[in-house]
Amino acid sequence: MSIKSLDPRVTRENLPEQPNTESIKDLHQWQTYEVFHQVKKGDHHIHVGPVHAPNPDMALILAKEQYARRYKCVNLWVVKTADIKKTDYEDEDIFETNQEKMYREAGGYKVMERINKFKAEHKNK
């Protein structure tokens, strides 16, 4: 006996009524690619998520379907996840600016006090 469904396409498949609990024989662990989209020309490409694909060409096709199906997109990049070198959140402190390194921040340069003092001195003369 096969499954009788409300969907004639399902009925035509002659699916067994007894549930099959066997695992899939071959797991296709494809490479993952990270996808970057550009919303309009001139913008930066922004990371939107991954796709599974056997090669870069398929990755682009799937990325278009997955991430550019709706809403504007003018350009897509894909890059192998494995090729991305990244920092660790554990090392977040490497991005912190040291107090003694204020010479490389805009806020490290305060001239108004000197200008005002200079102006005041020269006004009196």
Binding site: D26, H28, Q29, W30, Q31, T32, E34, H47, G49, P50, P54, N55, M58, K80, T81, A82, I84, K86
Partner: peptide, 20 residues
């Protein structure tokens, strides 16, 4: 869908967990 995945399979491709 299995034959499609087999046809596209590249034995040298290795799975990596995505960054998301």
């Amino acid at each position: 869908g299995e034959w499609v995945r087999n046809a596209l399979q590249r034995p040298t491709e290795k799975y990596t967990i995505p960054l998301a």
